[in-house]
Amino acid sequence: MLNYLIKRLLWMIPMLIGISLISFFIMHLAPGDITASESAFNPKASEESRQKLRALYNLDKPLMTQYSLWLKRIVKLDFGNSFASHQRPVLWETKDAKGNISKGMIQDALPITLMINLIGLLIIFALSIFLGVVSAVNQNRWPDRLITIIVFIGFAVPGFWLALLLMYWTGVTHSWLPISGLHSAGFEKMGHFEQYIDLFKHLILPVSISCLGGLASISLYVRNGMLDVLQQDYITTARAKGLPENKIIYRHALRNTLLPLITIIGLSIPGLIGGSVIGESIFAISGMGKLFFDAVLMRDFPVVMGILTIGSVLTLFGNLIADIGYAWADPRIRRGISN
């Protein structure tokens, strides 16, 4: 087990370098840099000043030099400051001499995205397990077919379109739910409980939209896994013993079906921290997706590289944890690894 762990951890180093190399070069291959943003196309801004800015950001140096400069800083866990004119720290807050705190950009955005996606993931899993089991038990009968169609519609509907329709219907026509943002105008003056209710209301639409896409794959996964397990000998044995069907399904079959889901959790980690640009733009939520998208369009290299690095580190760890968790849960594999 320990050997396996060490091997996996060692593999992560070349992978991280690979990821950062690929990202760095793709990013710099794309034409333009921060000094070419739309606002700089202003006759009052002179080319000399832009060259000066470029030199300040080392953008005039060869690519390899820029990469090694970046790598040197990253080893010290220094993600630098954004190139944009606000110069905020990319990762974590810094304090200036007067005690003013500049919050990190990822520090601001990540919790929001995590909150939405974690709630979304929980709902997806709960619903998927339920739907998958119902489907499997009623294989090829109408509840199965209906569920299949519904989860596929959820997958197939263009999210931003549905989001706008729902925003209009629940927000404008009926004023049931807020339209965008995460807080109402008077949020600061509310009591604690009211604040939670307010946040909850704001989360309903974004979370529902973010769930739709994932429902199909996971509920089908549960359904098919369940069908597989139900054919296994030990289920036949259990049936022969005369155990009630409910008990067979929930005690024996479901437990074995859920095992592989652990891997899926691991694989969904990039999605958890990645956020969705489209959803965040529509709902005016300042999460990771929007941050990243804006940074790419502005060619704000430190932010792009910061997000990618943090993202891939978390992803690789997520996969590792998922694999270990899977091994832990499945005795067959646990033995396999220690051999």
């Binding site: 706008l164 927000g171 965008s180 943002g181 733009s281 529509i282």
Partner: peptide
Amino acid sequence: RFIPDTSSQFL
């Protein structure tokens, strides 16, 4: 308020 999407702003 910062609302990136103009359709949402209009709503």
